[in-house]
Design a protein around this nucleic acid. Structure first.
Lengths: 233, 233
DNA sequence: TAGATTGTTAATCGATTAACAATC
DNA sequence: TAGATTGTTAATCGATTAACAATC
């Protein structure tokens, strides 16, 4: 998907080396492709091989990598291990990123168990829910806290990233509290447009949008005359 | 996000009215904004109001809507109910879309409970898992089936959309089986690049990519000298 | 009519990609 | 050196947005 919305497109004004957003969005994909190649024991890879593994055009891949520096060797390709290190450093996935999840419904629970986070430096350190009936429940290693514990948890664990997995109606209010607690990056799974002050980044994931895009194209295949039912309005 | 990868950018060759992919990706967002305005009892909305609700620029919104037709009234704005109907028809969310989910781990379970699907015409009609130990389990209203039931389920329920929520290693194999069963649209949550024949659309959702983009920007705030720990390589 | 707002044009911006000189 | 492949240029493509004529 294309990254759906960010409070500001390019959060750094001054010292920014100016890597385009579209490139930044692909770096994690290259990282995964490199990890795959490393697992298969490949010491080096050409831009062509890497691009194939990542599912992109090789010219685009080389252009993307050129924003980071010159890590390839002409006539040879890229050292898989080295390039992986360079990209991981650039995106910060070799750092430790404590994360709080707010809203421990089905989605929040799935996210808190999601293996793809921990392998990329994200560590879920706190679960919060606005429903007092849930507070105190144990979920995996973690206790579900009430919203009142937010400030303390953020300070204690130096959390800078919050994930919102609440219903849409609660999302703005939760975002306000996250911002007040000092959090500066928010990943929003709730179906709401969030307003946050400058200096706070918001990205949004909508699980149903991609499905709707598929349905749009599906509708246009086979002329639509294939017996599906139109369900009222 | 920008929609991350589609087998082909624009699946229809001939009779296509040629709505850009970027526009298609925003139609569901407008739909949601319109639903919100309708709930608040607004009979009409200007492009400015609607754009604010959707979090986009009003010129972009008008341009997007112009691909669908002329549904606004100059000097007045758009009829909320009518525009909602027109967009819903365009994206197919007023149809019934039977969906199969393969891989009933945490994520698969969360997706099968996700309210945002049913409200948009998607109906989860079958759950499948490759792990025989899971087969026969009841999950909500639905039984977990083994992969061998795929063909029958697809035929019986006229399923055209499949969701892959398996581990990455299983995803290509599952995609092959979905395609063989007649499914022509795949939403892939697994961390793998899928190869599918022409005529099949694949879209990919990566839950950790958005988080990594946030981390990238976060790393560049406050000069990075704020005490976060670098965890080895 | 006067005011408001659409639908569209055209300018701008950014992203993709083919091509190739540089160079290992 | 000959072959391979990077890093970069420049052309192309597509998306965004300001501006405004059309028109309710």
């Amino acid at each position: 998907m294309r990254p759906q919305s960010s409070a500001r497109t390019n959060p750094r004004g001054s010292g920014d080396r100016g890597i385009p957003d579209a490139t930044i969005a692909r770096l994690p994909i290259y990282l995964r492709a490199l990890t795959g190649l490393a697992e298969r024991g490949m010491p080096t890879a050409s831009s062509e091989q890497l691009a194939t593994a990542a599912g992109v055009n090789s010219a685009k891949l080389r252009k993307d990598l050129s924003y980071l520096g010159s890590y390839g060797t002409r006539g040879v390709g890229y050292d898989v291990e080295d390039l992986r290190y360079q990209i991981a450093r650039e995106v910060g996935s070799n750092q430790d990123w404590p994360v709080v999840i707010v809203g421990i419904g089905n989605l929040g629970q799935a996210l808190s168990n999601y293996g793809g986070f921990s392998s990329r430096g994200f560590r879920i350190v706190a679960l919060l829910d606005g429903d007092d009936a849930r507070v105190g429940e144990k979920h995996g290693d973690l206790l579900i806290h009430g919203m009142d514990d937010l400030d303390n948890l953020v300070t204690e664990h130096r959390i800078s990233i919050g994930v919102i997995a609440t219903p849409g109606a609660a999302a703005q209010q939760v975002a306000d509290r996250l911002v007040a607690s000092g959090i500066t990056s928010i990943l929003n799974f709730a179906p709401s447009v969030l307003t946050v002050p400058a200096g706070v980044d918001v990205r949004k994931v909508d699980l149903s949008i991609e499905l709707q895009i598929l349905a749009y194209h599906e509708q246009r295949k086979a002329g639509g005359a294939d017996g599906r039912v139109v369900a009222g309005l």
